[in-house]
Design a protein around this nucleic acid. Structure first.
Lengths: 233, 233
DNA sequence: GATGATTTGTACGTATGTATA
DNA sequence: ATATACATACGTACAAATCAT
């Protein structure tokens, strides 16, 4: 149950769109289960079965599946059925490489546009994360890591770019999660963050981009052997 | 918009999924009309009206609208209706900047991975386009331009990146179309393509990326005044 | 602010196309 | 290959929420 329906009725500043649609609930649940691999690639998704499971009719299930197909999480074969999208090792590698490039692109712009306050926040977060590394607190570090990167997205001053990058990151979240548990990735990740911040502090966008690209490619490389066994073995 | 078919080639190995679904037809039609501005931002889309117009029931219309909402072309306010997404000038600028960065990222990788045959194709296309520039054949140049850029996407050897970039390009297509008609953008565009190819030929990825970024930003700048009157004036 | 009209969200029915024996 | 079973795609019905008066 990952229903993040945190909706206190108090909408202070944001008109907080109410999302009480069954199709949204179903979509989010299925999205999670596909991302985490609980629903295996290639699996056939029967509309009636899902409807029974969620205690609804087929209608909202269909709408959820249609939406998932847009992002390629499921494949719709007209009149034949809906299947959990099969992700090949090559596709995952492509996604990681793209992710690395997107992050590099973000940090380059962020280097030129980050505010003093934001830079300070990044340093604070970075230093605080030292403790998590020492304690090998993988979950906490993963959470910090996401905040760290999303702070950088925001510093691009480009909402669209931030959203796009976050979307790709989200798609890879399931794979990335396991990666930090391997060996000394935590220590290495922390050190690489330091290099990125150093380059940003010097205002060297190209260099911060290079560091970020290396950082992301290291992370992905640390993972690919793992992925190979996990999804294709 | 599931997959921006970058290649309309005959897929020999892929059984070429037939898409004879009403919801797909409706989605594509609406997508076009929104992209071209025929359906103005903010417009309320009544399900029954659309159903009448397409001669169907509300069901496929709803599915089409749900899919369009994923890419943000329409906004769904639960129980209140569906509206054509409102695009602000700032959002458009963000999208163009992102586009420039994505293209730069693609051409950098392409520089390192392009095959001799592809490079040759790019040069052929480029030289052939000289005639289009002389004749001020904007439509033909626009078509060439898309091919040119999509050939570069393909040369990245990264399918995911190519698809992502093509998707963003598609989103901006409506705005871009008008841009080439202004002044001597055609001549300038052609010259900039030449610079990009030159950098690629030298194998200088960083430089080709810089040229591409400049190329795209020039194009977008040539457009922003236009857009301002068009969508917000 | 209450009431009626309109529209959405969901359930349900049915025929056509796909799979299977 | 034919027939049977079945899931999907689409249509229709209805309840609840929103809006208009």
């Amino acid at each position: 149950m990952t229903s993040i329906d945190v909706e206190p009725e108090i909408s202070t500043d944001t008109p907080n769109e109410e999302r009480a649609l069954l199709s949204d609930m179903i979509r989010q649940t299925l999205s999670d289960e596909i991302a985490t691999g609980r629903l295996r690639p290639g699996l056939s998704l029967d509309e009636q079965q899902l409807a029974d499971r969620f205690g609804t009719s087929r209608t909202p299930v269909r709408e959820a599946l249609r939406q998932l197909s847009v992002h390629g999480m499921v494949e719709i074969r007209p009149r034949r059925g809906v299947f959990v999208a099969t992700v090949t090792r090559e596709q995952i590698m492509d996604m990681f490489e793209t992710m690395a490039e997107l992050e590099a692109m973000c940090v380059r712009l962020a280097t030129y546009r980050v505010t003093a306050a934001e830079r300070s926040t990044l340093y604070d977060m970075h230093h605080a994360s030292t403790l998590l590394v020492k304690n090998h607190d993988v979950d906490a570090y993963d959470a910090f890591n996401r905040s760290f990167h999303e702070t950088i997205y925001k510093a691009t001053r480009n909402q669209f770019m931030a959203t796009q990058t976050a979307a790709v990151r989200g798609k890879l979240a399931a794979f990335r999660r396991t990666q930090l548990r391997r060996g000394d990735r935590l220590v290495q990740s922390h050190a690489e963050h330091g290099e990125i911040l150093h380059a940003m502090a010097r205002g060297d966008g190209d260099e911060s981009a290079r560091c970020m690209r290396a950082h992301m490619l290291n992370a992905s490389h640390a993972l690919m052997t793992y992925i190979t066994e996990l999804h294709l073995g």
